[in-house]
Write a protein that binds this DNA or RNA. Structure first.
Lengths: 239, 239
DNA sequence: ACTTAAATAATAGTATTACTATTGTTTTTT
DNA sequence: AAAAAACAATAGTAATACTATTATTTAAGT
């Protein structure tokens, strides 16, 4: 049985809310698979907590080593650099999202409904999902919002892109763009629309916390989801 | 005569293309005004070139010192840190944009036309504008596209926001949001719409260079401007 | 022209970061 | 019980992002 790297392997267990899922990450992103050992899992779990808490710039492998009562040098046996760890986490997130998307739309026929579900998934806050494995998805989503742009705003984007570091993200944009075209085959800019929505939603969440005058965020009113859902369907309706 | 910090002072000279304009930057952003000396101007001119060329992370005051045949320590007398220099440049850009916006819509009555002009200004590429002063606006715009998110994705956003470091940007979003409401007073999310358009357009330009599959960019077809102009007016038309 | 002050340049030094390399000590596997 | 793999501890490196001090040049005032 073959899977290309970054393939999602999943098993949907009927009539259950908790779905055993294994998210397979491109082995080029790590030196040793962190899923393969207890130390590796602690690295992932704690790094998510720490990056969320102190921010990516202040996060170091030395500090992480102290927190997991291990050593800086041991962490380097799993990840080449803290940048690679961030890239790993981001890929994990997008693989997980792709899996949830496939699951949620699997039995739905209506293109409109499928697109609605997709947009909601892309812009909605992540709520506690009985975090399976070593990953706290709620915190991971916050890292995506706060830090993910740092993964591709680097001098090395181009070479890293060639190596497939952003594959998962690009695949999600590709899949949802297909849903856009299913709904309106004449729309000229499906990728722009979807990447605008994804990045926009993340930024609006960030702005709502730090630069609220750039938003019209109001707590409990779901404005971000309402705004982007509206935006998508107004953009796609033939005027 | 009083001006609050970050106020734009401008003199519009009739029947001329080149408009003498003085962009006034919040003095809290620098230790010594770089406009006040030859060395200061060289710092600005060369830092724009260097940040554009090698990226913000690899840019250092030491390297800049070599390039302008001056010294690292002398640059520190103008700017507290390279971060503050970036914030300065970003404020300069938004002040300049606010000035151009005011100039372009000054005699226009139609709310629709005003908004069209504003959106075009926000998302269009910057073309060579007889660069007055020590600033190459074309390169500066590229820095905004590539690097500006680094100015506010930091641990210190909140305190810096309180100090007014992002005032110019917020004011542009505010003004254009007013134009949105002039055109459609019932629209619920003017700030979200405008900040989405601004940041989105920057990202699409970045993606078009580095992650083109996230866009539908085609050279010479002005897709970014067409996409965002459409998006705005479709979002604002009462369905 | 002379003094003073201001601006700039040169040098040195610091703490921290993002690593690499080496060696020793546990665990785990066979 | 031996061999291998994993991990921990330590040391070391080049670079960064600064600060501090001193020396030199340039400009300004009288």
């Amino acid at each position: 049985m073959f899977f290309d790297s970054n393939t999602i392997i999943f098993v949907i267990v009927n009539h259950m809310n908790t779905i055993p899922v294994h998210i397979n990450i491109n082995p080029e992103l790590y030196k040793k698979n962190p899923e393969s050992s207890d130390l590796g899992k602690r690295i992932i779990t704690k790094s998510i907590e720490m990056i969320h808490e102190i921010g990516f710039e202040d996060f170091t492998f030395k500090k992480l080593g102290v927190e997991i009562t291990s050593n800086e040098s041991s962490i380097y046996r799993y990840f080449e650099s803290k940048h690679m760890l961030l890239v790993y986490l981001i890929n994990w997130y997008w693989s997980w999202l792709e899996y949830r998307l496939a699951y949620k739309i699997q039995n739905i026929k209506s293109p409109k409904e499928k697109l609605e579900i997709a947009v909601d998934l892309l812009v909605q806050e992540v709520i506690n999902d009985n975090d399976f494995s070593s990953i706290n998805e709620v915190l991971l989503h916050k890292i995506i919002v706060d830090e993910s742009s740092k993964a591709y705003h680097t001098k090395s984007v181009d070479t890293e892109n060639e190596k497939g570091f952003f594959k998962c993200y690009k695949r999600v944009v590709g899949r949802v763009s297909e849903l856009v075209l299913e709904y309106n085959p004449d729309f000229e800019f499906p990728h722009m629309l979807i990447s605008t929505v994804i990045e926009g939603a993340h930024q609006q969440r960030y702005f709502s916390q730090h630069l609220p005058s750039l938003t019209d965020f109001e707590k409990g009113k779901n404005n971000i989801v309402r705004f982007y859902t509206n935006l998508v369907f107004k953009a796609l309706n033939i005027s």
